Computed example of a mutant assay.
Amino acid sequence: MLPHPIALRAQTSFEHEWLSEDFIAESRRVAAAAEESGNSPKKHHFVPQMYLKRWALGGKVQRTEVKTRHVHHPQPYEEVARKPNFYTLPRIGTRMDLPLKWVERHLGRIETACTRHLDVLGDWTGVISNETVKRDMCVFLGLQTTRTVSNRNRYLALIQAPSQQKRRVMKRLHPQLTSAQLDEAMQKQHSDPKEEALHLLFENVRWPVAHGLYQREWAVYRTASPIITCDDPVIFVAGPPFGRERSLGAESAAVLYPVDPFHVLVMLRPGLSHRGPYRLSRSETESINVEVVAGSDLGTFERPGDAIACAITVPPRRQQQLDDEAAALLNDAELDRVYRQDISPQSRWEPGSSGPPWPVPRWYR
């Protein structure tokens, strides 16, 4: 018999100081002190400033909208990839709730510690053997995966999806569960959907994202020409033998993470090993840029003047959310399709459609 989902999560949970209750408590104390001094940030970044700075020239980056390929005027890197009060919840008739204002401060403490790790990766080519760098970056990249706007929307879709649909999908995934176990597995931790989404942000780092990233061999490749990044910069690549319509998650896809305009961190599928050379050709570099554009939510970021993203066309994303009334009009197969589309990252390509070749074939063998 398969273990209960909660027991399985406990067995594969990724443990790290930055995910501990003590570290969170310190973040809360720092946030409270900042609130008392009137120094609490209101505009929250879902892609870290210290990361975007790596693409800045004269303090500015170039943003391109993927859907329209519109290129914006260069903007200060501090002014992009952010939303007002993204990690706080407004209470009706009260000031911003302080206990939830610690999240931006918490993320900032981790980003500060990882700035030097990114510097190390930007000066490196080849396999990464430094365990401290790898473990710390698992948390950093896990949080980068879960903190974006697109993931917030997926969490809300999961939380607010019709209960009968969630129950049916859970039962299909874990047929051994009793009714009582299903009730426990589906139980929410918080009544407010946005607060529950923030809870999932951290829970999904512990399992499965950080755990899935750690079970891999990591290497840094130098590119022959500039690469770009985006608003969802941890890129999951299904790769062959799958077609372009297939999406895989942190446990089974190859993972790409642009480190700077000339370095990309590559995490192969679990069980595979890197084979040099650790320098990508121009055509291989161009294929990485296609993956970054395809993996983005709304936009990409690059050095002003590089003009890379505006030359790449990908299909638009498709989303459809349902309430209980609309869900009642669909059959089970249609419900499953919509539900999976709402709560999981989806490929931009339709089944049966042709797309660009997967990048760097040696990464999948």
Score class of each variant (00 low, 15 high):
14 F>T: 03
14 F>R: 02
54 R>L: 08
48 P>I: 03
30 V>P: 00
55 W>M: 09
41 P>C: 08
36 E>F: 02
12 T>R: 15
25 A>V: 00
11 Q>W: 03
11 Q>H: 11
26 E>A: 13
13 S>Q: 06
44 H>D: 06
15 E>D: 14
40 S>N: 08
53 K>V: 00
23 F>T: 03
35 E>S: 10
55 W>G: 07
52 L>D: 08
34 A>E: 13
11 Q>E: 13
53 K>F: 03
18 W>T: 02
12 T>S: 11
56 A>T: 10
21 E>C: 06
36 E>C: 01
37 S>L: 14
23 F>C: 08
15 E>R: 14
46 F>D: 00
43 K>H: 13
15 E>F: 08
28 R>H: 14
36 E>L: 10
28 R>T: 08
52 L>C: 10
45 H>S: 04
42 K>M: 09
19 L>S: 11
37 S>T: 10
40 S>C: 01
54 R>G: 08
12 T>N: 13
54 R>E: 07
13 S>E: 12
48 P>T: 01
45 H>N: 05
32 A>I: 00
17 E>W: 09
26 E>G: 04
29 R>S: 14
50 M>T: 10
45 H>T: 04
16 H>M: 09
48 P>F: 05
24 I>T: 12
52 L>Y: 10
25 A>C: 01
46 F>P: 02
22 D>P: 00
40 S>R: 12
36 E>N: 09
46 F>H: 15
16 H>N: 11
19 L>M: 14
21 E>K: 14
49 Q>M: 13
21 E>L: 13
19 L>E: 07
42 K>R: 15
12 T>A: 15
26 E>Q: 15
30 V>M: 09
50 M>D: 12
22 D>Y: 03
14 F>C: 06
38 G>C: 10
51 Y>H: 11
43 K>W: 03
20 S>T: 09
51 Y>G: 07
35 E>N: 12
42 K>Y: 07
41 P>N: 03
56 A>L: 10
21 E>W: 04
28 R>W: 04
36 E>P: 00
51 Y>I: 08
36 E>R: 12
22 D>A: 15
25 A>N: 13
30 V>Y: 05
37 S>W: 01
28 R>L: 10
33 A>C: 01
27 S>I: 01
35 E>Q: 08
46 F>L: 05
